[in-house]
């Protein structure tokens, strides 16, 4: 990253066709997120959080402007290049976990490593590490339907983290969890952020999540309304 930025958006606009007209979901987003940040997009429902996260995750294309993710301008990527950006550098965490139901916990977490062609010894070690980060070492053989919501989300975090990506995008990761589980998961992610230096970008309107964020980016109607950085004891960002 030339300028230490993981994400940089420039005049990012996203329009969706609605009926005969169009709906502007993102309206000129200028945003810079540096390496190791623990930031969140905060805003009411419909403010464009998921839309922005999807474009940053190269799952969607901007209508105009640009999103540069890890030095790659998303709008110029072929679908193959976008896939390899996600495969190598981005971990996704979804509100509804999106685990593969017929696979065990171990296999779910192993999946990104299979795509990256790690050998089986490396895979086993990395999966076990990731499961120990989230405290699920004893559930490797369970399948998602047998797990609680909190456990499922922890598996999803392990899956997102196992390849040690540069960037993790988490869309409402606590929406289906109770307070205790939410705190548990957020602590886990905070630790990973601190220890591995992984950049986290959340989309949320959950107060519990917001209290953990070191940077809060408020979205209203597809625009950045406020951008607050929490000052900690060291005075750094």
């Amino acid at each position: 990253m030339e300028n230490g930025l993981v994400i940089e958006t420039k005049k990012l606009v996203k329009k969706f066709p609605v009926g005969k007209g169009e709906f502007i979901a993102l309206n000129g987003i200028d945003l810079k997120i540096g390496k190791g940040e623990f930031a969140g997009l905060i805003g009411p429902s419909g403010s464009g959080k998921t839309t922005l996260l999807n474009i940053i995750g190269s799952l969607d294309m901007p209508s105009s402007g640009e999103a540069v993710v890890l030095d790659r301008p998303v709008s110029t990527l072929s679908s193959r290049e976008a896939a390899s950006l996600r495969k190598e550098s981005i971990g996704f965490i979804f509100q509804s976990y999106n685990l593969l139901a017929v696979h065990t916990v171990f296999e779910n977490v192993e999946f990104p490593l299979l795509l990256l062609n790690y050998n089986s010894a490396d895979r086993r070690k990395m999966v076990n590490d990731a499961l120990s980060w989230v405290g699920l070492s004893d559930k490797t053989r369970s399948k998602p339907p047998q797990l609680s919501g909190g456990e499922c989300q922890r598996v999803a975090i392990a899956r997102a983290m196992v390849k040690k990506p540069s960037l993790v995008l988490a869309d409402e990761p606590t929406a289906n969890l109770d307070a205790a589980n939410s705190h548990n998961i957020l602590t886990t992610m905070e630790t990973l952020n601190r220890e591995l230096g992984t950049t986290f970008l959340f989309a949320t309107h959950d107060e519990k999540v917001i209290s953990y964020l070191k940077r809060k980016i408020f979205l209203v109607d597809g625009r950045i309304d406020r951008d607050e950085v929490k000052q900690n004891q060291n005075g750094e960002k």
């Binding site: 679908s79 193959r80 896939a83 996600r86 495969k87 999106n98 593969l100 795509l115 899956r159």
Partner: peptide, 15 residues
């Protein structure tokens, strides 16, 4: 959702 997940994890649609 599973299809979307495969894509998010790094598959192309053709894959």
């Amino acid at each position: 959702k599973e299809i979307g997940t495969y894509i998010a994890l790094g598959y192309t649609r053709h894959q």
